[in-house]
Design a protein around this nucleic acid. Structure first.
Lengths: 336, 336
DNA sequence: TTGAAAGCGCTAACAA
DNA sequence: TTGTTAGCGCTTTCAA
């Protein structure tokens, strides 16, 4: 079934069929009706491959993220899909697993399938090879920093840390101990730097700040918290991510300590699991879905060539739950 | 950049370039070397669009699921991607949001982009329209039952219910109250039917079995459990999904009841959040990733035309955690 | 082992 | 408003 068959069935030329199918204006109503009838009857579907080959547009964009099974990235993907969907764009999704070799392979697949554009969370610097193809690109995630020449969208870690810390201060808890993951260097450093910046303004004794590194998992958080606990329980802990915070919460409770009365806890990310812990985890939520949505929009602007390399930093929001003491006499809590 | 450029650069014909790029055997080493050098130097990437148009294969498959941001479906997607990846197949992923109209639109996108095959969780009966395109299809999820003529893969609910119930019986808890969601009719009915089947064998007074319907969310589970509690706390509750179980757990604890000592609880699904609740939720885990993986494999068998319409029902596994009392004198727990 | 030539299904000048 | 024609970049006979 091709447009030639439809042309034959409806008694017009294939150009006219093409015009009808593309919604061109200059077609008589009569021709349009005949074509549509033939399409309906035959169940014909235009071959987008041929269309793309000719037109140079595929209507597909690539999305390269670390892991679709990770709730944060799944949410980013969903945001991008929702935005793409509204414009009839399809998404080709790949997982890099933080592995440069996979990234390279998938980037190659993206160029070969001639996606119109791509949204990428870069693992390493292997992007250079990709850039020569001039495919419109938007970077997402903290590692985007390494490519200042490219447009990107991410969450505003400084602002997130800031509202989190403000909340801790407002509760009268003082300088927190930090729980950080080893998954992403840049993310880790940004987190710590942001805490230090606020701490300096607050006049905290930053030399005495306790900082525990651990694996970026529930188990890693539990282990790191146990180490912290062994050296004497901190009054409040700020974890760089929710998974570790959840592990820390388990360690706190396992040690017979009450949260938030004895050890208060603040997470970072806003993953769904944080909602159902006991007590429910107070955390700084990243705008994951919005990141995906905005990344797509940025892409689109690039495609139509209206803008150049903007760097979006979307605000985080404080998700009030139960692991931080209530503020009885609320003091202003900044929003960044 | 096309193979014609490469042909020119390397001093051979474009046919030879094509042969080298496709790994055909009948090419001299000399020609191969020259072509590869030119490719390397120029950074040429074969246009898969043209290739697909000519060869009739796109190397892409479609995946149509309700919601990629849902941890179960994200995991299914990941399983499919892992399997696809191993064969250099790309995935075009769409979300139906359980909406027949979206499903229809995305199915159409799939046919137009000429995917080699598709994995679909059907929402309604709107698949009929799609079937005429003869695209190899594998169904996933409980609604696949409505299309007995199509190959499918899903989890074995009966077996999952059976091992869950065996575990409850082994703990000496007797007939459970049921918490079921309204999201999917077929899934709900299958769950209840499976419980009844086991209950009959156990000699339970099924007429007295308490069954509470609710929304398929944490909040829905909490509300349903509160209703159950109001009429007198059941000794054990079997929830048809983890989200509701987690809500139920909150209701149990809010009522000042101890879990599992006073009210024991068993979930169904195996979502990540169930791992970090307090107490951690004992649940029957669905083989989500394996479903995706097997769906892809089935697809592939269809593509190469070796098999006909198999229906895979993958076993669930009991995830022992803390909301069911320990079994001190373990009795055999069936595995289906 | 190689090259010439036809054509996959469509779009986009161009001419009528 | 319509049809004719020339490709888009590749694979695949076929003949050499």
């Amino acid at each position: 079934m091709t447009i030639i068959d439809i042309a034959r069935l409806s008694g017009v030329s294939k150009s006219t069929v093409s015009r009808v199918l593309s919604g061109a204006g200059n077609v008589s109503q009569e021709a349009r009706d005949k074509v549509m009838a033939a399409v309906q009857e035959s169940g014909f579907r235009r071959n987008d491959l041929a269309r793309s080959l000719r037109s140079g547009r595929t209507g597909m964009i690539g999305l390269l993220i670390p892991d679709i099974a990770n709730p944060f990235w799944a949410d980013v993907a969903r945001g991008a899909q929702d935005a793409a969907d509204a414009e009839d764009i399809s998404l080709l999704i790949f997982n890099s697993d933080w592995d440069p070799e996979r990234e390279r392979r998938h980037l190659q697949a993206l160029t070969q399938s001639r996606v119109d554009a791509a949204i990428v969370n870069p693992v390493r610097d292997g992007l250079d090879d990709f850039l020569r193809f001039q495919i419109p690109l938007v970077l997402i995630g903290s590692s985007a920093e390494r490519f200042p020449q490219l447009p990107s969208v991410g969450s505003d870690i400084s602002q997130g840390v800031s509202i989190g810390l403000d909340r801790i201060v407002a509760a009268g808890l003082g300088m927190p101990a930090l729980l950080v993951g080893d998954a992403e260097r840049t993310a880790r450093e940004r987190f710590v730097a942001a805490v230090r910046a606020v701490g300096e303004a607050e006049g905290w004794p930053l030399d005495e700040m306790r900082l525990e590194d651990g694996q970026y998992t529930v188990e890693g958080g539990r282990a790191a918290m146990e180490r912290l606990l062994k050296a004497g329980p901190p009054r409040v802990v700020f974890a760089a991510n929710d998974l570790m915070a959840l592990g820390a919460l388990q360690a706190i409770r396992a040690a017979g300590l009450r949260c938030p009365e004895e050890v208060a806890l603040l997470g970072f990310d806003g993953i769904p699991a944080a909602e159902v812990s006991t007590p429910a985890l107070t955390t700084v939520g990243k705008p994951s879905r919005e990141i995906g949505r905005q990344a797509f929009k940025l892409l689109n602007r690039k495609v139509t060539g209206q803008a150049e390399a903007p760097r979006l930093s979307l605000p985080c929001t404080l998700i009030e739950r139960e692991t931080l003491p209530r503020i009885d006499h609320p003091r202003a809590v900044g929003t960044g």
